[in-house]
Write a protein that binds this DNA or RNA. Structure first.
Lengths: 230, 230
DNA sequence: ATCTACACTTTGATATATCAAAGTCAAGGT
DNA sequence: ACCTTGACTTTGATATATCAAAGTGTAGAT
């Protein structure tokens, strides 16, 4: 099997790449995503390129091959199912499960993974709203706009949070701003770069545009179903 | 933290040592328990001795220090709680959980472990009947005699199975010979080195003395309730 | 056209964990 | 006393994954 390190490079490359996966991801970006120095990433990337898991253009960057993408999706699937399991079955807080899953994703067997998936009744999204790849390697690629793009007076519901910082996640939970929850945009101040939100079942709260950009939402009137792609 | 390798050496040393842990375990024995060559074990053991986790007498053997024992017990606790969890919550077969737990025991955090322990309501024994060390580092050291020491005509109940071979475990399950189940010893043939058993809810079956020695039992004459169901 | 800055690659080193094979010790048999 | 044997240790090598620092390539600034 593949080492933890290999799985991590592939996973982070997948998470860094653009939707189509056609564009090269710069080495520096991959290195900092994985948490290693650029030199280390260069070495590993050469190995992965030789194994046919990614294409490497020196001084250009890297891109997953179909084989690499498949493996990356499998790692992401494990990560997100584990997170869901930790929250729904073991009752951990959603702010703590990301780090736990970082380790578990590399040792959980497929047998255990599929048991968990079954117990959870094949969830489509994890507690952060991130889509869970299927066992066959497909993933929901539906795009959502960030809260930061919406104007005052709009009603939206939270779909996904692109930030794993435990303190921020605890903040969101406290203010009823988790995926699935509705929120009205009460005000937006371009000068202060802040938005004031009124969560359906919480008190008004003001957050910066930077953090708002990490919260993906959809118009609350909209009920469009989502589509999957291979 | 300690590496997977370190945890494995300590765990296996704990499992190989005698009850009091006073006697030295020979290097060759440790090496084959861990699954490495003797030279590898020598190298690692020197490191562990320097860390104060075990005492090493060259050409004599090794023995856990109190610090090493504490760590070993923690690893064993993780292993056995995970096994119990995999059977009771995820519904895996008791014959497959040992190998699964071998990997998981090194990455499960204490936070997750204690959640699982709580969900399982602090089990005292794992699916094989092995006692689970407590979080405080104590372990049930009750001794049980093996089935091989009993004579024909005795009624016993299975307490513990000292064998992780999946095929043997499946065999035992098929014949209703799991921990908590009762069995009458119908016959014993010293020449054939075989015993014929009549499980309470199964058909008679004959097993060799060697395998019978792996099954620990207690006399079933008293009405002492066994907490195990399923 | 050249310079400069930054991103990237290369190089040399470290840490961990392992094995194969050579060397060594010690206990028991002769 | 000596040899043999088997268990153990030592040595030299490999694989993986990493970093720091030196070297290099390239694209935009002057």
């Amino acid at each position: 099997m593949h080492s933890t390190a290999v799985e991590n490079y592939l996973k982070h490359l997948f998470l860094e790449q653009n939707d189509d996966g056609e564009e090269l991801v710069a080495m520096g970006r991959l290195a900092s995503a994985v948490g290693v120095t650029p030199g280390t990433a260069t070495t590993m990337v050469k190995t992965l390129a030789e194994s046919g898991l990614l294409d490497y253009e020196p001084r250009g960057g890297v891109r997953l091959t179909p084989a690499g993408r498949k493996l990356a999706l499998h790692v992401v699937r494990r990560h997100r199912i584990i997170e869901t399991f930790l929250v729904k079955v073991l009752g951990l807080d959603w702010s703590e499960v990301h780090d736990e899953a970082e380790d578990l994703e590399h040792v959980i067997s497929d047998r255990v993974l599929e048991k968990i998936d079954q117990i959870l009744n094949h969830p489509e999204r994890d507690p952060h709203g991130d889509p869970i790849p299927t066992a066959r390697g497909t993933i929901d690629t539906a795009e959502h706009e960030s809260l930061a793009t919406y104007d005052a007076g709009t009603d939206v519901s939270v779909v996904r949070v692109l930030d794993q910082d435990p303190e921020f996640l605890q903040f969101l939970a406290r203010h009823r701003l988790r995926p699935g929850q509705r929120v009205a945009i009460q005000g937006r101040d371009e000068v202060a770069e802040a938005m004031t939100l009124r969560p359906e079942s919480g008190n008004p709260v003001t957050i910066g545009i930077g953090k708002a950009a990490k919260i993906l939402v959809r118009a609350a009137t909209d009920a469009a179903p989502e589509r999957r792609e291979s």
